[in-house]
Design a protein around this nucleic acid. Structure first.
Lengths: 173, 173
DNA sequence: AAAGTTAACTTGCAAAATGCAATCTAATTT
DNA sequence: AAATTAGATTGCATTTTGCAAGTTAACTTT
């Protein structure tokens, strides 16, 4: 999409500004890969399962770096390889990713097991803390396994009746 | 962007599935307009301040409707007009929008006053509850005013030092 | 009632972005 | 030395977005 340049079209709204950075199909997927799956290399992102093209992958990685969301480090074990890592600013997107995940698992047919989502929904702080801890310690182990595509039935988009999504039920104690 | 068709490219990952729905520059902005600003009409969305083209606006509204995030109702006061409204599924995106807003206000230069963001960050549940209440009651009044574009200084992208974003500090009580 | 304005799009076309697959180069492995 | 691989880049086709004009019916003003 032809984004207006920042100087010409910068709205003051934070949501709009954020979407200027990551309002596309791929950027948050890469953040997810780094944050949740512990991916670090071009090759790993490429093989994430969603079929990103290499030119788009290279472009998005550059953009995440330019936005201060990710940074690059040479990989010690292979001179051809670069390790991408979320910055502090990048890991601060964890609540965004978590809320997207929960929303989607609740309202769309996904491969995420209900029990896992229940757990995460009810222990947001613990999930976020663990995500952060792994980031600090550069732990590349995935938090979640890759979920398989849901069974190929398109009738009934929701896996189970949507929960009543009253924010009151999620109030901070 | 040329999205793979759902049948061909559906990843099981909730984040990926969500981004298939709203992973673009404009969709979540429209959700914001409905949710936060109380906008309902084509004209209001068009004049939101970010310069969306009418063909894209029409397209995105259709897509949000098709995804079950928004619905249309005829406007009683004008036979030409349609009111768009978030569905239950749509209002359930409030935590996503709120986290994006907070992240952006913390890490980018936006027009959002610090005090407002502080408030929202520390009272997430109350903000979400209010958002939901307004949705239930079809209250079209904006929760937040449109924020003005930040002053045109590009040096020092952050309005103030980034807060230490330890998820621990945001644990659910 | 006629003329002017407006709401909600649609349309035609140019520009930009994305997607596909081949290609390239240096590092690594066989 | 030959083969393979990591991380891109490239050429081109396709799709999407953006711009601005156009359309039609509903509404407002004259």
């Amino acid at each position: 999409m032809a984004r207006k340049t920042n100087a010409e079209r910068r709205s003051g709204c934070p949501v709009s500004i954020a979407l200027e950075i990551f309002g596309d199909r791929w950027s948050l997927l890469l953040v997810r890969d780094m944050m949740v799956r512990g991916y670090r290399t071009f090759r790993e992102f490429q093989r994430s399962g969603e079929g990103i093209a290499t030119n788009i992958l290279a472009d998005r990685l550059q953009k995440l770096e330019a936005a201060g969301i990710a940074e690059r480090e040479p990989a010690a074990e292979d001179g051809r390889s670069t390790h991408y890592r979320l910055t502090e600013k990048g890991i601060a997107l964890a609540p965004v990713l978590l809320e997207i995940l929960i929303w989607s698992a609740r309202h769309e047919q996904t491969g995420a097991p209900c029990a896992v989502i229940d757990q995460m929904e009810q222990n947001r702080a613990a999930v976020l803390a663990e995500t952060y801890r792994r980031w600090v310690e550069r732990d590349p182990r995935p938090i979640l396994p890759p979920f398989e595509a849901p069974a190929d039935k398109r009738a009934g988009k929701e896996k189970h009746p949507a929960r009543k999504n009253s924010p009151k039920g999620r109030a901070k104690p």
